[in-house]
Amino acid sequence: MLAYLFKRLLEIIPTLFGITLISFFIIHLAPGKPTDIFTELNPKITPEARERLEKLYHLDKPVIVQYGLWLKKIARFDFGESFSSDHRPVIEKIWDSRKPLIERRLFVTFMINLLSMVVILLVALPLGIFSATHQNSLWDKIATTTVFIGFAMPTFWLALLLMILFGVELHWLPISQLKSMGYASLPFWGKVWDLTKHLLLPIFVSAFTGLAADSRFMRSSMLEVVRQDFVTVARAKGLPERLVIYRHAFRNALLPIITLAGLSVGGLVGGSVIFENIFGIPGMGQLFYMSVMTRDYPTVMGILTIGAFLTLFGNLLADLGYMFADPRIRAK
């Protein structure tokens, strides 16, 4: 078991290296340079000024040399400094340890994604099981239609409609961002309430539009399991249906869900650009989008590397989850 874990951990290293190599070259292959943003249509900025800036950023060197310089830093867990005009360390942009937790981008995105993942699992699993046990009933059809409507609906459109209803018409919920104007002066529970109000819409939208995958997976895997012999046996020996489903069938049906959850661990830190822009949430998606548009290579690479690492880590977790859920794998 430990040997297996060790082997898996070692495998991560070359994979990670490969990921950085490919993403570094792809982002550098995109036309344009970080200095383009300065030079866009402003006659005050001369070609000499531009050349000087490029030298400052080492952009005059060949890509392979730039990759080497970057890799040398990464080996020391130094993500370097951003190319945008603030020149802050990349890590500070992602995780500014001097700011309160709620003002750190990585935390914001992680919190929202985790909450919506929890909501999705809490709703999708029972819904999937329900659909499976009531296969082809009216309620199954309603549930299926609902999750597919959510899946098909454009996030930004649903978000705007809900903002108009709850924000502009009813004045129940704030429209965007995470905090109200007077947040700093609120008592602790006031802060919690303020945050909750701001998070309701984003989490509802992301959960509603993300229900389909998990609930459909749960339904089909459940359908497969309830047809197997051991379920028939359980029923034959007279167990109540509730126990048959939740104790015996459910555990076996969980395996594909674990894979799915493992894969989404990486996604937990990569925010959705459209979603974060609509709600004005200062998360990783926004940062990544802005960095790509300004060709801020160190920031882009920093985010990609962290994302890649977490995805690999998520896969590892999924494997461990299998072992926990399935004795057959443990035996091997």
Binding site: F156, M163, I175, S176, Q177, N277, G280
Partner: peptide, 20 residues
């Protein structure tokens, strides 16, 4: 003076109507 960053123009327009 508060400089509020709202990357989406449609959202900002809704904020305008609610006093945000």
């Amino acid at each position: 003076f508060v400089y509020r960053v709202i990357p989406d123009r449609a959202t900002m327009f809704l904020e305008l109507q609610t006093g945000g």
